[in-house]
C-alpha cells in the first residue's frame, strides 16, 4: 500500500504539449513540488502556466511526459490523482444560472460526497470566505471578487491535498486580495499544498516559499524564493528628503536620479551597502524621511530572468563565454 505522504505533491517529468495548430506550448518541462509547499508558478502571458495546470487537472491532453500527484500517475491512476486535486481556474467556469450553494454542493457530488457531507463542507467554506449570506443568490449576480471566492470554496469542498490556483486574485481589490492571502495561508497551514500562478509578484513573494518561472514553454528558474531573491544584483530605492536637494547632490559610486526637490531614486548593487549611501547623504547634511523599493524585488528579478538571453539566441549566433555563463546561471 502506497503512503501518499512519502511522495511529492506534484512531480512532472518531460512534459510536452503541442496544440493541433502546431503551437508548442510546453517543451519538456520538469517540476517537483514538495508536499505542504506554497509554490509559485510564474511567467508572462502565454508562457505555458495555464497549459501546465490544464494537463495536471485533465483539462488539456499532453503530448508527452509524465505527471504524478502524490504518487498517483494521472494516466494510470487518474481517479486517485483527481481526488487529490482542487483547482481554481483563471476564468469563471461555474454555471451562471445556478445558486451559490448549489454550485458548491454539486461539485461535492462529483467527488462522491454524500449530500449531507457536501452541505456541511459547503457551509464551512462559504462561511470562511464570507459567502454564506449569498448562498441563495444566482451566481451571475455576484461581484467579481465574490465569484473568485466562490471558485475557491468550490475547489475546497472535497478537501484536496493539492490546491491549484490560476490567478485567483485577478481583478480583486487590494483589501479583498489581502484577506484571500490570509485565507490561503491558513489553508496551507493545515497541510494543503498550494500552487499559485499570479501576475501580482508581491503576492507570490509574500506567500510562496518556492518558485518556478516558465517562459515560452520552458522552466527557466526553479528554486526557493529566498535563493532567487539573493540573485538580485541591484535594487532601486526611492528616498524622500527633509531638506531640498539640488543638482549638486553627490553620491560617488551610486547611480541616482532626482525626481523632484525632495525626492530622488538610487540604484544599490550587490557590492554596495545602504550604510555607504546614508554616510554620503549625512556628509551633505541631507535627512531622509522615508525610503521604499521602487519596484517589488521579485518583480525586478522576474524581469531580469526573463530578459536573460535564451537558448535559441545562443544557438542562432555566436556568443562570448560570459553571455553563456550568465544564461547558465539563470537556467
Amino acid at each position: 500500500m502506497t503512503n501518499e505522504h512519502s511522495f511529492a505533491a506534484l512531480e512532472i517529468n518531460g512534459l510536452e504539449k503541442t496544440y493541433n495548430n502546431g503551437f508548442q506550448a510546453l517543451k519538456g518541462i520538469s517540476l517537483n513540488v514538495k508536499a505542504g509547499d506554497f509554490f509559485a508558478l510564474l511567467g508572462p502571458n502565454g508562457a505555458g502556466k495555464s497549459t501546465t495546470i490544464g494537463v495536471i487537472c485533465s483539462l488539456v491532453s499532453k503530448t508527452a511526459g509524465q505527471v504524478s500527484v502524490f504518487g498517483h500517475n494521472i494516466d494510470t491512476h487518474f481517479t486517485e490523482a483527481k481526488q487529490c486535486i482542487g483547482v481554481v481556474p483563471q476564468e469563471f467556469n461555474f454555471n451562471q444560472f445556478e445558486k451559490v450553494l448549489d454550485i458548491v454542493i454539486t461539485q461535492g457530488g462529483y467527488y462522491g460526497l454524500p449530500r449531507r457531507v457536501a452541505l456541511e463542507r459547503a457551509e464551512k467554506y462559504l462561511r470562511l470566505l464570507d459567502l454564506w449570506d449569498m448562498r441563495g443568490m444566482v451566481s451571475r449576480t455576484l461581484s467579481g471578487g465574490m465569484k473568485r471566492r466562490l471558485m475557491i470554496a468550490r475547489a475546497l469542498v472535497h478537501e484536496p491535498k493539492l490546491l491549484i490556483l490560476d490567478e485567483p486574485t485577478a481583478g480583486v481589490d487590494i483589501e479583498l486580495r489581502r484577506s484571500m492571502w490570509e485565507f490561503l495561508e491558513k489553508v496551507n497551514a493545515t497541510g494543503t499544498t498550494i500552487i499559485l500562478t499570479t501576475h501580482y509578484l508581491e503576492e507570490a513573494e509574500s506567500l510562496c516559499r518556492n518558485i518556478a518561472i516558465i517562459d515560452a514553454g520552458t522552466i527557466i528558474e526553479n528554486t526557493s524564493m529566498k535563493a532567487l531573491l539573493r540573485k538580485l544584483t541591484r535594487e532601486v530605492f526611492v528616498l524622500d528628503t527633509k531638506e531640498g536637494i539640488s543638482t549638486e547632490l553627490k553620491l560617488p559610486g551610486f547611480v541616482f536620479r532626482l525626481m523632484d526637490e525632495h525626492c530622488f531614486e538610487v540604484e544599490v548593487d550587490q557590492h554596495q551597502t545602504l550604510n555607504q549611501l546614508f554616510e554620503l547623504l549625512a556628509e551633505q547634511g541631507i535627512t531622509i524621511t522615508s525610503m521604499r523599493n521602487k519596484a517589488n524585488r521579485l518583480e525586478e528579478m522576474f524581469v531580469s530572468v526573463l530578459n536573460a538571453p535564451d537558448d535559441s539566441e545562443a544557438n542562432d549566433s555566436e556568443v562570448d563565454s560570459s553571455t553563456t555563463q550568465a544564461k547558465g546561471a539563470a537556467v
Binding site: L59, F78, E80, K82, Q83, N93, F94, N95, T106, Y110
Partner: peptide, 16 residues
C-alpha cells in the same frame, strides 16, 4: 450549455 459556459470542467477535473 455546459460546454459553452465551460462548467463541464467541473466534471472533467473530478473523478467522475
Amino acid at each position: 450549455g455546459t460546454k459553452f459556459q465551460r462548467n463541464i470542467e467541473e466534471m472533467l477535473v473530478a473523478p467522475v
